[in-house]
Simulated scan of single mutants.
Amino acid sequence: MVRVVAAVAVFVAIFALAAMWFVGRGGQGGDQFAQCRQTQIAGGTNTIGGPFELVHEDGQTVTDAEVLTAPSLIYFGYTYCPDVCPLDATRNAEATEILETNGELVTPVFITIDPERDTPEVLKEFTDYLHPRMVGLSGSPEQVKSASQAYRTYYRKQQPEDGDDEFYLVDHSTFTYLTLPGHGFVEYFRRDVSAEDMAQRVGCFVNNM
């Protein structure tokens, strides 16, 4: 009987240690960011993101490896957007400021889906107004399409009803994507996430790198 009790005690101890290890690893197959995630990605996070080559707002051609050197918040939009894009980009800039106050440097990145009008000069004026460290990226239609496909975003140019090709709108998805050096894409944020909530969630990922 004593041996049985001892064996049960050993089993319970081993089980408790295993449970503590599992919780410490995030409870999801060793995912170090499990406690930070609030979204699920069909196929896993490795299905979003990847290499791109675009034109920096300063005029030089750059790759993802040259731009995403710090935790980054990536948004696909366009500067002529009448409402959604300025609000989303401003929210991302505000979250960046909150994180910076907490000692966590994050790079906000704005990738245009309207390269026809969003030249590097136009993007630079737009991003500099929102945040001094916000990076604007443009490129050829092919380069922009490739980057958009890598992040599984959607955009489509609308034909203006009055026939004026200069003042068209662009339908597009509105997610913001968080990438981390050495990890790539790890999380996305919807439009209804506040700057404060975004900063808190991004901080969780940064602190668990």
Results as ranks from 00 to 15, higher is better:
G136P: 11
G29Q: 04
Y78F: 11
A65Y: 09
E66C: 03
V67T: 03
V55S: 03
G103Q: 09
M134W: 06
V135I: 12
Q28S: 15
T90S: 05
P108G: 01
A93I: 00
V67E: 09
T107M: 07
V62A: 04
D83M: 06
L123D: 12
V67C: 05
G136N: 10
T79C: 05
Q28G: 13
I74N: 05
T63C: 03
F22A: 13
A34I: 08
G26W: 06
T45P: 11
Q32Y: 13
V55H: 07
P132S: 04
V55T: 10
G50Q: 02
I98N: 10
N46P: 10
A19R: 14
N46Q: 14
T127W: 07
H131P: 00
I74G: 04
G103F: 05
V62N: 01
L54S: 03
P86E: 00
F110A: 04
E66S: 08
L17M: 10
C81K: 01
T96H: 07
M134N: 07
V62Y: 03
D88W: 03
G24A: 09
P132D: 07
Q35T: 13
G50N: 05
E97P: 06
T101V: 11
C85Q: 02
G59H: 01
V122L: 10
Q32S: 12
G103P: 11
W21V: 15
A34G: 08
C36V: 05
E100P: 11
Q60M: 13
I48E: 03
R91Q: 07
P132N: 03
V122F: 14
G24L: 08
Y80A: 08
R25L: 14
L130T: 04
P115W: 06
E104N: 13
L68P: 02
E104R: 14
G103H: 08
G136I: 01
T119Y: 10
D128Q: 15
T61L: 12
W21D: 09
R117L: 12
P115K: 10
Q60E: 07
L105G: 13
T45D: 12
P132W: 04
I74F: 02
A95G: 04
